[in-house]
Nucleic acid binder design. Sequence first.
DNA 1: TATTGTTATACTCTATAACTATA
DNA 2: TATAGTTATAGAGTATAACAATA
Lengths: 148, 148
Amino acid sequence: MSSTATPSLGPHSAVTLDTLVGYALRRAQLKVFQQLVARLAEFDLRPAQFTAMVIIDNEPGLMQADLARHLAIEPPQLVPLLNKLETRGLAERVRGQQDKRAYGVFLSPAGQALLVQLKALAAESDREATAALNDAERSQLLGLLQKI
Amino acid sequence: MSSTATPSLGPHSAVTLDTLVGYALRRAQLKVFQQLVARLAEFDLRPAQFTAMVIIDNEPGLMQADLARHLAIEPPQLVPLLNKLETRGLAERVRGQQDKRAYGVFLSPAGQALLVQLKALAAESDREATAALNDAERSQLLGLLQKI
DNA sequence: TATTGTTATACTCTATAACTATA
DNA sequence: TATAGTTATAGAGTATAACAATA
């Protein structure tokens, strides 16, 4: 019987989707994100726009290329996103003085004020979507995910 | 100081993206799925096509509407997916005898043989992408995710 | 000549309405 | 008339190439 073992999976390779971390991740991620999307819709915002506001608030004046990198999107995708925030008076592009090609991105006072609300909403949404976990389990999950 | 507490978040509401399960889920899910996409690309297959093959194998002859529901996609999205599997000789639609509107979906012998390889590949990809976890952590993570 | 941001474009994924053929 | 599958279409999300202004 020892000759039937395979080095990668062993003889008991009952591979079902339920045993794969990737599929469990996908289902959980979909649920949590749908919850956030629904909550942010109240403010006519998408998760990426909220995330952009958080990053801009943490690093005011950063350049668009850097913001795009933080968001893990390509620069062209940032253009309509920033346009929307700027049109709504939540953020602004300020042209560089030394380098006139570059634009620093800032939150407006209105944007900063709204962000306070949005952060509370996001935290609440996160807890709602993971209501099946207690606090210990939630931080345990957070730690495991951050290891990946 | 007791008057400064808020019922929803408490006085220490330092909300950053790192404290949200949703963002950790998203990053982890992206990594694991990109790994799977890369491994399946070797066979010119997408994750949804692999998942469809697993479901068909578990429930041979199921109707397309049921398959779409299992995949959490809309029936129109299933059409090109199944067309591709059928063109490549991995699956087949068999028209119902009582109800000629319905089609039962089956894997071909070639599809079943390929699926054995694909399951091993998917399990390996999953372990590679979560190599930062040991077996105990991985099954702990799986349990927490399935609670959500 | 290289770089910042932008436009144009395309490809995938997703969702909905309308069509066909059967019932 | 209702249902299974399909077609057509449109909207997001994502990625690349090409362009304008500036360096």
